[in-house]
Write a protein that binds this DNA or RNA. Sequence first.
RNA 1: GGUCCAAUAGCUCAGUUGGAUAGAGCAACAGCCUUCUAAGCUGUGGGUCGCAGGUUCGAAUCCUGCUUGGAUCACCA
Length: 597
Amino acid sequence: MNIEEKIKVNIIEAFQKIYNAEIPEKSIQIQKTRKEFIGDFTVVVFPFLRFSKKSPEQTAEQLGIYLKDNFSEIKEFNVIKGFLNLKFYDSFWLNFLNTTLLEDNYGFVKSNEDSEKIMIEYSSPNTNKPLHLGHIRNNLLGYSIAQILKANGKNVVKVNLVNDRGIHICKSMLAWQKWGNGETPDSTGLKGDKLVGNYYVKFDQEYKKQIADLINKGISAEEAKKQAPLLIEAQNMLLKWERKDADVLELWKKMNAWVYKGFDETYNNLGIDFDKVYYESETYLLGKSIVAEGLKKGVLNKKEDGSVWADLTKDGLDEKLLLRADGTSVYMTQDIGTANQRFAEYNNDKLIYVVGNEQNYHFQVLALVLKKLGFSWADNLFHLSYGMVELPEGKMKSREGTVVDADDLLNEMIETARETSEELGKLDSYSKEEVNNVVKTIALGALKYFMLKVDPKKNMLFNPKESIDFNGNTGPFIQYSYARIKSILNKAKDQKIEKSDCVSSNIKISEKEVNLIKLIFDYPATISEAADNYSPALIANYIYDLAKEFNQFYHDCTILKEPDNDIRNFRLLLSQMIGDIIKSSMSLLGINVPDRM
RNA sequence: GGUCCAAUAGCUCAGUUGGAUAGAGCAACAGCCUUCUAAGCUGUGGGUCGCAGGUUCGAAUCCUGCUUGGAUCACCA
């Protein structure tokens, strides 16, 4: 039983004994005492007034007396309005620190075969253009949430569903065929995804020219868009692809291979990975038989032209097409199929899709249609809907060239980190290779922390002109705090300062030090809250508080030169514990920490 | 037009089952390195929590309406 549960039990007892009343456990609110008051935990007594039939102050006072008498850990209490603040003995916190020092992965819950199994899909790129800032948010979120769920004792399967087919892929293929002159990543020195992306842009440019020509000839804009020869060629290419035309398939495989190589490089640089990769070219036909089944059951309906629909108007939504008149399927059909396949194959308890909030409607429809089709697991789909990354001018638009490229951004961050490190003279004694490693760690830390510290649900702003900060509430600030801790611990070792396995509980410690132990106390609850809410931001905010508090402690207290052995030992162990938590919590965000910086 | 989401300091963001005087960082200004890493620490200024009602002991938080911004409502993915 943890301390908060113990307090709760005692409050219930108190009300039985003092007021002969049964108070519901849910009515008990225990929160951390705010900084401006004395205490560790605060009980809110307002909800109890109808049981005590006394004023808030009187109720709190009587409850406080009872708790202090029955709780050897409580040193004192005070009452302010309807709030009962409980102050614990320092020894309680020191003993608590000792229990955490004994744990291997403090704050983490171990998983076993019976643990909940969660599949999480993220990234899901198209193979016609390179990854950009929006993908970065997606990738970082997906990877981090997977880490957090694992730390919370779940069995996690990370999957990627690559959109490798369709008209948009044919567009870049066609453009390369027409204007590529046989260019390859090798011949140009370009990353494969960049090269292919260039041809996607080229297609669009030429297509627009054709449209303009047609409009000049007096054709309406709408018609021109449909009649442009390039588009018709692309459509023909898609048909050939579907008929498995050898030449088209060969070209498709060749160009996709270039893209995958490029993507792998970017994923690798970002430090994210997957347990399994699905390709749409292999899944796009899934779902058709399920739709046919639904038609039989009368859950879906067929229109005169032969197309199949789900009527969701009674649920406040529209009708949704599932099969075209020619029998070909749409995206929704595929998602019905892949979801079904995944639950069958992996027997997971949950399936999370990390997809932008622009697809909220799609996932709402998906869950509803699956439910109508009678799949019991339809309730276990979860759309982790995250907000857009916006630029100061608004949304990123690939056609207007305002897209922030993932690789470019990463390289810029690394250069900034390098310049800053040089200016500060931090890495003067390092070898070239060490510098490269540290600088990359810092750059990635800055970028990842920047993107993960904001609530996933919210849109966020990224200003390319103001490069991501390294001071204040940032990844490097936290990394720096960690490096400081490492530095002290190393010096302690060099100076042969004794460090035992536990702290003495008889020492006098400062308020800052108690605050730090209290933050350590909060770590496990923070992980489970982050897991419940699928929110790396909760972890990020927690680490920042911890690092900030540590830096104050570091500033105020000497560690190595502390004359009292017990206190020095305590400070060393406290620092070590905080270092361990910074490292482990940062790993939940997919961020590494350097030993020196 | 229907549906959904958002709005908190000049800027970027916290504020999680409704709790005490709404917090950080950046930017500005003023301090702190002969002392464990100054990517740090301390201080100052900065708020009608979009607006108006309602619910109650108590509302940035819940409800209703409105304003503003965004997303979406494709035989695109």
